[in-house]
């Protein structure tokens, strides 16, 4: 009899939790985590490509040293940030990580723009292949980021609605920090904007 009652209580608790959106919160949080994992792995893929790019550019006589150092420094900075799953819940750490990656993006695009001035690099099949790989990775990064932004949005909207917001409060689920798109844009486009814009 007592066992029956316990079973009944368990079933009741489960159905109440399901009705309060606990399962929905769980699945959306999982979606955020996996979208984040994809973002991180694409950034990692880019970081792995950079040493090859740097080496092939180094072979180019009198290549702009400053551009090259910027890329190397930005990569070192970006890879020095510890990436943990908790990063998605910490606005400050997330901001730091994204800023570092954004700087690497801009340093790289500057490097690719500068490389256009060197005909021997343009004719170098190895360098062009690396360029294709880099462009593909940047493309994947932007898609992974968009999917992550959507996943976070979905999660944040879901836990702010009744009755899930009560469940979220009871179990300590907080809204996740969103990508700050404006900052990202400013950081990433900075070096490309000053091409002949007549700035004094």
């Amino acid at each position: 009899m007592r066992q029956m009652r316990q079973l009944g209580l368990a079933i009741l608790a489960a159905s109440v939790l399901a009705g309060c959106g606990y399962n929905g919160i769980q699945s959306r949080e999982q979606a955020v985590q996996s979208a984040w994992a994809e973002v991180v792995s694409q950034y990692q893929r880019r970081a792995d490509l950079i040493p090859n790019v740097v080496n092939s550019v180094k072979g180019q006589a009198n290549f702009e040293q400053e551009t090259l150092t910027q890329v190397i420094d930005a990569r070192a900075k970006a890879t020095s940030v510890q990436v943990t799953p908790e990063l998605v819940n910490d606005p400050a750490a997330l901001q730091k990580f994204l800023q570092a990656q954004g700087q690497l993006t801009s340093a790289l695009s500057h490097l690719l723009a500068v490389s256009e001035r060197y005909p021997t690099l343009q004719a170098n099949q190895g360098f062009q292949d690396l360029r294709t790989e880099l462009e593909g990775t940047e493309n994947r990064i932007s898609i992974a980021r968009n999917r992550y932004i959507k996943a976070v949005e979905d999660y944040n909207v879901y836990i702010s609605q009744l009755p899930q917001n009560l469940t979220a409060m009871a179990f300590g689920y907080k809204a996740k920090p969103q990508y700050t798109v404006e900052n990202e844009k400013a950081i990433e486009t900075a070096p490309t904007v000053d091409f002949g814009s007549g700035k004094k």
Partner: peptide, 8 residues
């Protein structure tokens, strides 16, 4: 699932 693979 088109997640950015391919080339331009």
């Amino acid at each position: 699932d088109f997640s950015g693979g391919g080339a331009s």
